[in-house]
Design a protein around this nucleic acid. Structure first.
Lengths: 200, 200
DNA sequence: GGTTTTCTGGACTTGCGGGTCCATTTTTGC
DNA sequence: GCAAAAATGGACCCGCAAGTCCAGAAAACC
């Protein structure tokens, strides 16, 4: 992938990806013009195609990977420490807060969009993100089961899948309505359901 | 909007919208070429701009409205008769079935995508659909409350919002993974939560 | 049946934006 | 320092698809 890349080159490449990511956030995937990326990052067409021989598609794939990683980073360390109800609540609040702040500029929403989705490579990026995300939630559920805070009969993976779906749908609706109602309702419903299992 | 449109003109216009909708389903929004729509519907550029002076954008808006209406039609009459637990289950199964059959060709997913989302008009279409959808679910919940199958303390609108988010997220993940796991898990979680409220 | 409106066909223009190419400069490695 | 490789700048090409325009056919209207 990366073959003989000097520090300077590395920096430029990074600048391009970051700039393109910002452009995607600001204007949406299909509104991204290579020209704009160049302007924003102070680079030339030669550089762009030097670092991304595959052109726009390759660049957007790199952006997708970059943003996907960021999604989970933004939730850490909370997502990795779902070991008590207050911790779950803190994570929930963080998620809501993050997407509320972000508002309409959703890199993830952009990734999920029809434009890039088509290519298997970008699909893989999104799928990978979802798998990791769901895995982290499931781990949290299993930990809560080990302490008896969640009933042992609960299927952790399935519950995590449901919660993830609620989050994604909530974000999607946030993008369209500008309100966090759905996201909050979905998270709270799932958490309440899990809490409810502990009491026999 | 529609001013002096002969039967023949009406038919042509309808053919164009239907053809464009099919094109969107098959190839995704941003892959739709006016030329392809013309070929599929056996129309000419003159006709296209005759019926949609606003060009591509206006045509896609009409398609969006068309598809949004279809989403709810496909769930009827089940969605309008959520008056017993078996009815809820039947509706749940219908939703899962519908999107499973549809697979990757999701008109709604296309609408939600970044391409069209930008314009306020298409946003309004999607928002309107979501409002009606959530309203129907909420009505179902309220009916179940009236019969005592769901606890009166439940906030019907909020629960419906959560369920809708789960559905949207489930469909989104279905589009990316090709599996209905998330959709099913989300629906089941929500339904179980509602069922659970009845027993004290 | 003649005039007016609507409908249809398709040639043409246009602009945007991705991709190519190469000349020049800078860095690396020895 | 001096070749080789990497990095940079930007002029140029070119295809695609949206949108324009107008002329001719069909229908509506009285």
């Amino acid at each position: 992938m990366a073959q003989a890349l000097t520090p300077k080159g590395e920096a430029t490449r990074g600048r391009i990806v970051a700039g393109a990511a910002a452009e995607v956030r600001d204007r949406g995937v299909d509104e991204v013009r290579l020209e704009d990326v160049m302007a924003r990052t102070g680079t030339s067409k030669g550089q762009l195609f030097h670092y991304f021989p595959g052109g726009k598609e390759e660049l957007l794939l790199a952006v997708a990977q970059h943003e996907a990683d960021q999604v989970l980073v933004d939730q850490q360390p909370l997502l990795g420490e779902l070991t008590s109800w207050p911790a779950w609540q803190a994570w929930r609040d963080r998620v809501v807060q993050r997407y509320r702040d972000q508002g309409e500029h959703c890199p993830l929403g952009a990734l999920l969009g029809p434009a890039v989705r088509r290519t298997p490579a970008t699909r893989a990026v999104v799928t990978g993100l979802m798998r990791r995300w769901q895995g982290a939630i499931a781990d949290g559920i299993r930990h809560m089961q080990s302490t008896g805070d969640i009933a042992a009969e609960v299927d952790a993976d399935r519950a995590a899948a449901a919660m993830l779906a609620g989050i994604q749908g909530g974000v999607l609706l946030l993008l369209n309505t500008g309100r966090t109602d759905h996201l909050e309702a979905a998270l709270d419903l799932a958490l309440d359901a899990l809490r409810g299992t502990a009491r026999p």
